[in-house]
Design a protein around this nucleic acid. Sequence first.
DNA 1: CTCCTCTGCCTAATGTGTTTAGGCAGCTTA
DNA 2: TAAGCTGCCTAAACACATTAGGCAGAGGAG
Lengths: 188, 188
Amino acid sequence: MARAGLTPDRVTRAGAELADEVGFAHVTASAVARRVGVQVASLYSHVRGTDDLRTRIALLALEELADRGDAALAGRAGRDALVALGDVYRDYAREHPGRYDAARHRLDPATAATSAGPRHAALARAVLRAYDLTETDQTHAVRLLGSVFHGFTSLELAGGFDHSAPDAQESWVRVLDAVDTMLRSWTA
Amino acid sequence: MARAGLTPDRVTRAGAELADEVGFAHVTASAVARRVGVQVASLYSHVRGTDDLRTRIALLALEELADRGDAALAGRAGRDALVALGDVYRDYAREHPGRYDAARHRLDPATAATSAGPRHAALARAVLRAYDLTETDQTHAVRLLGSVFHGFTSLELAGGFDHSAPDAQESWVRVLDAVDTMLRSWTA
DNA sequence: CTCCTCTGCCTAATGTGTTTAGGCAGCTTA
DNA sequence: TAAGCTGCCTAAACACATTAGGCAGAGGAG
């Protein structure tokens, strides 16, 4: 038998590609096995099962997103940084819709703690450094950023903006402007 | 054989309850059949299959949400209306997490058009009447509202705010305040 | 080069969920 | 009360998930 040379990582990547093609919800062990040219049972040497596979895809997506975030924020501040980070999430979601959904997959607390999740909070805080906020207000603002980035991205991805003018890009710019305004005029 | 007296509606409601208990993703025809005390195959007289069942739950959730929205906006305007509508989504998500997820289920365009979806856009526009916006800006603002409401709600539901102080309620108030302030000063 | 071992991938089997086909019995209508 | 409709049933075929156990090929030791 020719060996396929699988590793947990390779299986995860195949799963991520599949997710982008057919949707995260349709990622099954069987489909991944077919994709990598192996019997289903063989996957179980590399991942514990479907749930583990989905979790690994989620962790991969979170890391890819955080890496892009780091790159985007380097050398930027204020409104520029805000737009750059927002674009990271929105662009990633459009390039990799399945992975983006995966990143919303609920992780158990232990896994979440060792994931790239905390890096995302740090990215938001980095954007907020340019605005003058107290510690507590910064937390509120982190949540606002998360809500707007994720909310807009997820509604756009779900096709919520498809059948009305003007196009989403225009609204995106205006929404980011609005958020910038909110952050500038944030008052206790 | 005792008849269970099923109807598509009854099946859908059982599915919605199940979704709230175990999560929308885990709603299966088998589980619904068990819940209503009937063999799986019997469900197929009432719904076309699992997909149809999920779609019906989504439509139910969208309508319940729109109904609550109508009730909440009656006699309110401005900031009051904004908060009331936001609370509709957030409270509904906390009371009915499975249904809330269902409401995000992607519908085909034909179904979406006859769903309560358009009512939701109308609700947002109703909130925005009190603010002085051009037609186009209103569309952008509708999308901002949708993003904030859905984004915050969905991150909270996913447990994103669980392990950090202060609690989500406080951030929610601050976020809505910020949106209100920002809508007042919206400029082209 | 040969043998040994390790392990990656296999076949087989079980359980659960989905869906279709066809049958029977209990309300409904005349 | 006979006829028919239809709601629910059993049966069967197919896909996915998961576990148990086997074989053979790649790599190291002599």
